[in-house]
Computed example of a mutant assay.
Amino acid sequence: MNLENVLIEEKEHLAIITINRPSKLNALNKQTIKELHVAFKSLDENSTIKVIIVTGSGEKAFVAGADIKEFSDFSVEEGTELSRKGQVILFDFVQNLGTPVIAAVNGFALGGGLELAMASHFRVASTNAKMGLPEVSLGVIPGYGGTQRLSQLVGKGKAMEMIMTAGMISADEAKEWGLVNYVVEQAELLPLCEKLAGKIMQNSPVAISAAIKSVNANFTNCVNGFAVEIENFGLSFGTEDFKEGTTAFLEKRKPNFE
């Protein structure tokens, strides 16, 4: 698939995905969602890539929502399918990706943009970032997992407030509420994400993938997260990374995870 709205840059074991629709403030249309799926899938299947950073082009927006023109005349059935398909091919897909995903939130992250950031494994924001789910001001609700992930991250009360007021919060408020991990000047945003990625790369990619599955299990209906943790903990003992990690510890050297 020829990617028109998404750029991919690879730096050794790191990949940076940039949503590149600056004239639309990087709004998510159906084409961009498809392209993001292709980008994430191909990088996850690339064994040399250990961390993915996702960001938006320019200095104004990470993603300023969905492309409203595409669905303003949709029927009930079409709206339902829009939400279902989007969650499957992008938002749930990113959340469950075995490769760690860091969202570098540069500017506006609204609607689908905030939902993409929340689907990532954690978030770093620039000081000019503004985040919100304004869907109810359009007569609709967040449809790409926003009602679920926001409440998981900031709690039910804050999530209800943000969704019902359709308001935006600042980067500092997002950090205070636990929505983002760090807030830095925009010039420092990608360097910090790359620094964090470097720390992640020092550890076992097999164990990290198992940890992602185990943490996500806690937020999955009808799944016992503790049981998933026990299973993945046990499976770790059968991996080459476990042998290398424990051997390196006993030999007082840094592990070399292949």
Rank of each mutant, 00 (worst) to 15 (best):
A103N: 07
L133V: 06
G98S: 14
N96H: 15
V94I: 10
L90S: 03
E81R: 10
G139T: 12
K60G: 06
F108D: 10
I68P: 06
L116G: 03
E70D: 05
A109V: 12
P100R: 04
L138T: 11
G79N: 14
E77L: 11
I89G: 06
S120D: 01
I68D: 13
T127Y: 06
D73F: 13
G65M: 13
E115W: 08
Q95D: 06
T55I: 00
D73V: 12
S120W: 03
G139R: 02
M131N: 04
A117T: 07
E59L: 14
P100E: 06
E135C: 13
S137G: 11
S83M: 15
F93S: 09
Q87S: 10
E135D: 15
G79M: 14
L116F: 04
E81A: 12
F62R: 01
P134I: 12
T80Y: 14
E77Q: 13
P134Y: 11
V136N: 07
G111F: 03
G98A: 11
T127N: 07
V94E: 05
I89L: 14
E81H: 12
N128Q: 09
E59D: 13
M131D: 09
A125M: 05
F62W: 06
G58A: 06
E78S: 11
V88W: 10
E59P: 04
A61S: 15
K85E: 14
V105R: 01
A119N: 02
T99L: 05
H121M: 08
A104E: 00
S57V: 07
N128H: 12
G107D: 00
V124Y: 00
L114T: 05
G132Y: 02
A109K: 04
L97V: 03
K60M: 08
L138F: 15
E78T: 07
V94G: 01
L90N: 01
I68N: 12
T127L: 07
Q95V: 05
A129W: 02
A125V: 02
Q95H: 07
T127G: 07
S57A: 15
T55H: 00
F71Q: 10
E78C: 05
A103Y: 02
F74L: 11
F122A: 07
A125I: 01
K130M: 13
K130V: 09
S75W: 04
G56M: 07
N96P: 03
T80C: 12
E81Q: 15
A104W: 00
L138Q: 13
L82M: 12
V88G: 02
L82T: 05
F62I: 03
A109S: 14
G56T: 03
E59H: 10
T127R: 13
G112H: 05
A125Q: 05
S72T: 09
G58P: 08
